[in-house]
Amino acid sequence: MTLFHFFNCAILTFGPHAVYYSATPLSEYDTLGTSVKAAVVYLATALVKLVCLATFLQVSETEVFDPYQEALKAMIGFIDVAGLYYALAQLTHRNISQNHKFQAVGLGWAFADSVLHRLAPLWVGARGLEFTWDYVLQGLEANANLVFTISLAALGSLMWLRKNKPKSLIPIIYTCAVIIATMPSITSYLKRVNGWHFPKIVGFELATSLVMAFISCQLFILCQRPSL
């Protein structure tokens, strides 16, 4: 593979973030500052997660799926939810509507995640001579991750920023939020116990992200009706 392939994979990985920003009304409401703040919060959260993983997690020699270790990893993964809460609820945002706020936060969060997790492997691997489908699949996974993050931000916005939501929807909101937050553990389980390969996992992530996006969108719309 060549630099050309690197550009292709980079477009697939980071292009949707730019497209989302320019296509939606976010670009007209000056939400870039919010996205940048969310990215900074993401970096801090990633650092805290790294310290917790290094402190509490035991690296096993074998690749056996350890339920205790996986549960611990999922609990550490909830630090992401705490970080997202901070980005949504605690940061001061200048006169941005709730509708745009969660999208800006989700977008910044997902972009920072892609840069931190995928840019270095992409630069190192996609420019090498050896061709593999891994980097194309990683780009697709970044797309799924973007959808997941915006969905989680939408649900977080409903949970923490909207007070008068219908009571019948609250369990659904929390269930979907938990599913999205534990998605890394779910994919890890599918990979190790069920023996799924990377292409299958990426397909599963894409399908699940679309379903979650649809459900989150519907929940958001339903929660907005009483205010109308």
Binding site: M1, T2, F4, H5, F7, N8, I11, L12, G15, P16, V19, Y20, S22, A23, G128, L129, E130, F131, T132, V136
Partner: peptide
């Protein structure tokens, strides 16, 4: 020993990605 992809493949991939981004937009 490298297993290499062709320039044609990368061009096709670029077309596919461009179409995808346009549709997404």
């Amino acid at each position: 020993i490298y297993q290499v992809a062709s320039v044609t493949f990368d061009l096709l991939l670029l077309l596919v990605l461009g179409s995808y981004l346009i549709v997404l937009f």
